[in-house]
Design a protein around this nucleic acid. Structure first.
Length: 272
DNA sequence: AGTGCGACCCGAACGC
DNA sequence: TGCGTTCGGGTCGCAC
């Protein structure tokens, strides 16, 4: 499932391959995928071209001459580049065809991903983008910032780390890994996090995300595509998806329990 | 305002 | 074997 590292990898990979190619056809095979009206979506994309691809948190922001295409991959979204004459596969929902007869195809098994085509001047008004917090790669993300957000919070720190308005881009996998690296129990309440612990969280988040991006993301499920995006970070996971396996540090069995409805993996010995 | 939870999806895993 | 059921996961929107 794509987290920020995968999204960043997709951004970089696509950027090398689709910029400045004129769009000649757009197929929308699953309309609920779009926040926009499908008719306008097609009309506005055709004859335009991608001129840059940016990212905000887990949102991909495709810049065109006149619009931005916002795309969130959620759990299973993937982009493939294919020749236009290749058969359309079951879960390909949006197909953008370029003048050179190559397709950019959006594939999403569970149909959870979303796209939104907006006018350029409206980017600042899109709530989903506007409310994103600081990113792990952002210099302004400091323990002071995090502590200010944790003050008075009764929620478990694990839940808070998933709140994209505080830290943008940490998903379930990285939240589990960051807390392991910081030796913090996932259930510890936000308001009880110390300055030292907040520092550990920030340092771990920055390191883990940086490392994951270097390795091209996590991708538990195999994710080979025509883009050549294959995550290697899963080999470095310390707790995530390792229930009842030994902790790589102390050999205690890793636990998995739901915290606010989300699978939470931790070492009961290393994360007291 | 802060918090909790169902809905959105469908393949995989599980139960019988 | 084959059927039916349950589960998961990021985000939104609604209820409290």
């Amino acid at each position: 499932m794509p987290e920020i590292a995968e999204v960043e990898t997709v951004r970089k990979t696509l950027k090398k391959q689709i910029l400045h190619k004129k769009i000649k056809e757009v197929k929308v095979l699953y309309e609920k995928m779009l926040e926009s009206n499908p008719i306008d979506f097609k009309k506005d994309l055709i004859n335009d071209e991608f001129i840059d691809i940016k990212r905000k948190g887990k949102w991909l922001i495709f810049e065109l001459q006149n619009h931005y295409l916002l795309s969130h991959l959620r759990m299973e979204g993937k982009y493939f580049l294919k020749e236009h004459d290749e058969p359309i596969e079951k879960h390909e929902h949006i197909i953008i065809t370029f003048q050179d007869n190559t397709d950019l195809r959006y594939h999403d098994t569970r149909k959870f991903g979303r796209m939104n085509l907006i006018n350029k001047e409206d980017l600042e008004t899109v709530e989903a983008i506007k409310k994103q917090g600081l990113e792990p790669g952002d210099e302004d993300l400091t323990s002071t910032y995090l502590l200010s957000k944790l003050k008075n919070k009764n929620l478990p720190i694990k839940t808070i780390l998933l709140d994209q308005t505080i830290i943008s881009g940490l998903g379930n996998i990285y939240a589990n890994e960051v807390l392991f690296a910081s030796h913090i129990n996932p259930l510890k309440k936000g308001k009880d996090i110390t300055k030292k612990e907040a520092e550990d969280i920030i340092i771990s988040a920055k390191n883990i995300i940086k490392r994951a991006i270097e390795l091209g993301g996590t991708t538990i499920k195999s994710y080979t595509s025509s883009l050549g995006v294959t995550g290697k970070f899963q080999q470095e996971l310390m707790v995530h998806k390792r229930e009842n396996e030994e902790c790589k540090i102390c050999h205690t069995l890793i636990k998995n329990e739901k915290v606010n409805g989300r699978s939470t993996y931790y070492c009961p010995h290393c994360q007291k």
